[in-house]
């Protein structure tokens, strides 16, 4: 709590200092480059490839915003941020948008004065255990040693969960996911707990993934999404509707392959027409070019394409869509209408 108050004070001070930069959209357009904060490395979500280009599911959000605002998905300057530096970097204006698998919580939204512009991944905390241990439910973990990353919400969730189920556990604090893998494989702990996406990514790297099970319980809600500073609603709208455009595009069947065709002339579906700018002036209302969504979808792809490319079942990370399916498929993705 003390820390968040401290960070909040810093953030507030940053806002006072940063009033002049309430015109983020104009600033970005003048600069010709988007400053985007990402993780220093998180499997599937942000990582540099062999050519030094940043890739990943979170990185794609940055690229999509750059494509919407500047028409060029490569016009992004990435700032790698740690969990400690991410909020100050955003509050002080060092980055324009933060897409760094950050959980949308009340205090971050209200107290730290940020604005979450949507959810790009619905995650939740899970457990992984060795198959030899013979547990099939997290409720059987009484007395287990648990590897857990320090200084994250997962630590608090774990304490809550075990306390409310009258179970005891012995925490093994570790610093990074890579270290956790080594500790878990070396048998320093019975169970490893972190976000379910992280568990899946970790398990996929094991020599013998089938020797480990991810337990069915998900003990927390972790809606991860991009965020911007309070007080610049126009810029918040740009980021929010860029994400919505990617989600809606998937729902409407627009892909990076067919978007140029569909945008060349107005079609039968008025919503597609409005989204792609062949009808109406939605882009101008946002302060962008009318083909903003076309740029996003053609250069980055729709939500489903990006998901499949970086974290989907065809990748080594192999995440199922689950909660992150369209609402029509029983998931939670639900873009407000483009009208």
């Amino acid at each position: 709590m003390k820390r968040s108050v401290f960070l909040g004070t810093l953030a507030a001070a940053g806002l006072v200092a940063g009033v002049a930069s309430a015109q983020t959209l104009a600033d970005v357009q003048a600069r010709g480059e988007l400053n985007c904060g990402t993780s220093t490395g998180l499997a599937g979500f942000s990582f540099p490839d062999a050519n030094g280009e940043w890739q990943g599911f979170d990185v794609a959000i940055c690229r999509a915003v750059a494509a919407a605002v500047l028409g060029d998905a490569t016009a992004v300057s990435f700032t790698p941020l740690t969990t400690q530096t991410r909020f100050t970097a955003l509050a002080s204006g060092e980055v324009d948008v933060l897409a760094r698998n950050t959980t949308w919580t009340f205090s971050r939204d209200v107290d730290l004065q940020f604005e979450f512009t949507g959810v790009n991944y619905y995650d939740g905390q899970g457990f992984m255990a060795s198959r030899e241990l013979g547990v099939s439910s997290a409720l059987e973990l009484d007395g287990a040693t648990v590897c857990i990353q320090t200084g994250t919400t997962t630590e608090l969730n774990l304490a809550d969960y075990f306390a409310s189920n009258n179970m005891s556990y012995e925490p093994v604090p570790i610093e990074t996911n890579a270290e956790a893998q080594q500790q878990y494989l070396a048998g320093a702990c019975d169970v490893y707990t972190t976000d379910a996406s992280g568990l899946a990514a970790t398990r996929a790297t094991f020599e013998d993934p089938s020797a480990h099970v991810v337990l069915p319980e998900i003990i927390s809600k972790e809606p991860l999404g991009p965020l911007v500073r309070h007080g610049d609603s126009q810029w918040g709208d740009v980021v929010r509707w860029t994400l919505n455009a990617m989600i809606a595009a998937e729902e409407l069947g627009i892909t990076s392959a067919n978007v140029t065709d569909m945008a060349s002339a107005a079609g039968d579906n008025p919503e597609i027409n409005r989204l792609l700018g062949t009808e109406g002036e939605l882009g101008a209302m946002l302060g962008l070019e009318n083909d903003w969504a076309v740029n996003v979808i053609s250069q980055v792809g729709n939500y489903g394409e990006v998901f499949e490319r970086f974290i989907g079942e065809s990748t080594p990370i192999g995440l199922a869509r689950g909660l992150n399916a369209q609402w029509t498929d029983g998931g939670l993705l639900y873009s407000p209408p483009f009208r």
């Binding site: 942000s46 990582f47 490839d49 790698p80 740690t82 400690q84 970097a89 890579a178 996929a204 970086f310």
Partner: peptide, 26 residues
């Protein structure tokens, strides 16, 4: 400096490990 997000060799070892090809190397 890895703690303030500069990518020195240790920082890069994390970043490299985050790529799908090399996840799990230590």
């Amino acid at each position: 400096v890895v703690f303030i997000g500069l990518l020195d060799p240790i920082g890069f070892s994390n970043a490299i490990r985050a790529s799908t090809e090399w996840n799990g190397i230590y």
